[in-house]
Design a protein around this nucleic acid. Structure first.
Lengths: 257, 257
DNA sequence: TCAGCTGTGAACAACCTGTGAAACGCCGCG
DNA sequence: CGCGGCGTTTCACAGGTTGTTCACAGCTGA
């Protein structure tokens, strides 16, 4: 299933397109104009069809920002008239495809698919769906994580949180960003949900895979996923002891199944 | 550098395109018609621009086979007339983009780039270029600085301060400016917070990377980040001597053992 | 030499996180 | 319709970490 947003004021085009996308089971959202990038993030879109004419003068800057913030979002421009220079500029900015109007909805759909297919290929090469880290196996296809074949019995939110962390293994994620991407909207000040779910995850992880510590707290910042064999002792040893020749990039091992 | 092949009998288009690609440093190969897929594989192409008109009746089957064998190859169709149905079919088959002729070579190039962008962006996303200075490595994705792989164990504020300094290495930053950018609001008169954090940073830097002096005081002005091998004793502030017209950043490479 | 600036150490308040438990909303079931 | 089970959110508290402030000593430059 594909989540698509359309920014255009051409109501005929939008409705015809949405009829078609509905038939093939896509989720489509229609927007009147530019909306804050954070909201776009929250919508968890796969692709965006946009008519730059409705974006106003700042259209290009806006699109550039979007493409920068959401490198995984497929962006298809669909507009009336355009010059070669405009098209070239747009494509260089980060737009994935450019269709001229009038255009057939079916072609737009095919182009969206082509753009997303390309992206999936690129991603699937880097992240073959099951992520393996430490004793853990996070399987997006089952909405579950496993240790030695046994399910951790995660709820939906727990799983999404773990998946997000595991995908960005090694880097510190701030609470706001986590909340934004898992819950889908901005975190209210003082919300402790993330912390609570981190605890639940840690409990289940500890229960099914003792001997490993997966989620590390970064005080005042957020959390970092990094499987470490917490071999019982000598865990918090910043520098007193040994050089701990951390092999540079500690690669969360990703195994192609 | 991009390796591109063009299958078209429109010699004018091909030569104009090849002139342009040559300028920007791409390797272009022109083919008269369909060639065995194995040969295409051997050419290690990044992208293929093809006019299906020269492929004959088996054109679609050929393209489908190509797309199947070489999922990493970007395929751009460039043809005279086409119907919506043809374009949709082509895009569904695995073609990445479709341009109508006549078309400007610059647009073709921009579209090839757009098609190939995903892969390399996904790759570059994994290496968000940490700042390297002296023995030090400042990694924004971890909110930490490292020396030889060992963390300095910086707090959030310490890290943000160090990051700011390291980003603007070489130039003197005034306290007001530092406070403004790290704390986010104007510094109250007489606030010593910056000084205190500079001290904390110097302590941790000295502990983890002796032999280097990173942060220099400019009396009455502010601080300047500039890694210098403080060769043991003689460090009576060499700035009396010369403005240190350092050519660039001499990045002592950090190699994790 | 002096006034002003900076380094230093320590004390304190503010803030952050871990944790347990209660409250809430949503379903399916009797 | 009420009832329990489940998952999520909120709350309050404890303990630890961090940020801020202060006083004093040392240093700088005129």
């Amino acid at each position: 299933m594909i989540r698509l947003a359309v920014i255009d004021d051409d109501s005929g085009f939008v409705t015809v397109l949405s009829k078609r996308t509905e038939v093939i089971g896509w989720q489509q959202r229609s927007l009147a104009g530019a909306i804050p990038p954070e909201e776009l993030v929250a919508m968890k879109l796969n692709a965006l069809v946009v008519n730059p004419a409705v974006l106003g003068d700042e259209g290009w800057a806006y699109l550039e920002r979007i493409c920068g913030i959401l490198p995984d979002l497929g962006v298809i421009v669909c507009t009336e008239r355009s010059t070669v220079a405009q098209r070239v500029r747009g494509l260089r900015l980060g737009v994935d495809d450019w269709v001229g109007k009038p255009c057939h909805p079916e072609e737009v759909i095919a182009r969206v698919e082509a753009v997303l297919r390309r992206r999936r290929r690129a991603r699937s090469k880097l992240e073959p769906t099951p992520i393996v880290a430490g004793d853990l196996e996070v399987r997006g296809d089952r909405f579950q994580a496993f240790v030695g074949g046994r399910s951790l019995d995660l709820t939906r939110r727990e799983f999404e949180l773990l998946q997000l962390l595991a995908e960005s293994a090694g880097q510190v994620l701030e609470r706001d960003a986590i909340y934004q991407r898992v819950w889908g909207y901005a975190m209210a000040h003082g919300d402790r949900s993330v912390d609570v779910f981190i605890r639940k995850l840690r409990q289940k992880l500890e229960k099914c895979s003792p001997g490993w510590s997966y989620i590390h707290t970064h005080f005042g910042v957020g959390y970092r996923f990094d499987p470490e064999p917490s071999g019982g002792r000598a865990e918090k040893d910043p520098l007193a002891g040994l050089p701990v020749a951390e092999p540079d990039r500690d690669d969360t091992r990703i195994s192609a199944a």
